[in-house]
Amino acid sequence: MAIEISEVAKGDEGGRRYGPDNPAPVIEPPRARTHRTPRTTRTNFELYGWLFMRVSGVLLVVLVITHLVIQLVLDGGVSKVSFAFVAGRWASPFWQVWDLLMLWLAMLHGGNGLRTIINDYAQRDTTRFWLKMLLYVATVFTVLLGTLVIFTFDPNIS
């Protein structure tokens, strides 16, 4: 009926079983609250991050769906998208601001979402740290590059 214990007294030292005189090693709970646990930050960063995700999500629904309709559906669909088409749209400050807003909101929304996922799923502190550094560098790079292109776009480039 009962399955026998397959491995008996594995890991004991010098052939002695664990017992009162030879206690089994203490297993530390993962990431327990210890004296090395970081102190509370007392900032509202997480609150603002949480709110930003909700607000930017609602705005992005409008921004992205309109963007997709203009780019992929109206006026012959995706085949019309060319350098001239982009140049024509970015001649208007309205679409410049639209695209800029979309770029910043989408990158920060996605970046914050990934930061949350890394915090939830990365187990080791060093893994967590380097994944987040990679994420921050990639986010800042993309946002700055995109902003640069929107503001310095030259329709007469040869």
Partner: peptide, 14 residues
Amino acid sequence: NPESSEHAFWQDFT
């Protein structure tokens, strides 16, 4: 049981 094995296992009781 950490004092007999470092591995957990399943045991059936009917």
